[in-house]
């Protein structure tokens, strides 16, 4: 569950880390489930199945090398996401409608 992509490859012969995303049903999004260590993509997929799919609740799985993930950093979160937080006009509640009219 290395949510931290920058955590990097640990020292000394440890197999690379892969982030695992599972889909529980068709139509649902793939969600981050955790991570596994594996020598290559094929083994990562098998390990992911064994670790996160023991109860049949998985119909699809993705594995991604952790080091390939680029993530935002908490320090920049303010300025980075700011542009989205002051735009009330992007929300339906911003607009008035006459009483009693069914809009949706």
């Amino acid at each position: 569950m290395a949510d931290d992509a920058s955590n990097g490859a640990p020292a000394g012969g440890q197999w690379p880390l892969w982030e695992v995303f599972t889909q529980e049903q068709t139509g649902q999004p793939h969600e981050h489930a955790g991570s596994v260590h594996a020598v290559d993509a094929e083994q990562a997929l098998q390990n992911a199945r064994d670790v996160f799919g023991r109860r049949g609740k998985v119909v699809s799985v993705w594995v991604v090398p952790t080091e390939q993930i680029t993530a935002s950093t908490p320090g920049d979160a303010g300025p980075f996401f700011d542009p989205g937080s002051d735009k009330a006009y992007r929300h339906p509640q911003f607009y008035k409608a006459p009483r009693g009219v069914r809009i949706y």
């Binding site: 569950m1 290395a2 955590n7 000394g12 012969g13 991570s35 260590h37 670790v51």
Partner: peptide, 21 residues
């Protein structure tokens, strides 16, 4: 399952900067 539990928690602990090895 217990092996899996160990695995989940080791992974979570690795995010704190300690290696599995």
């Amino acid at each position: 399952d217990e092996g899996g539990h160990g695995h989940y928690i080791y992974c979570a602990t690795e995010t704190l900067g300690v290696s599995r090895d």
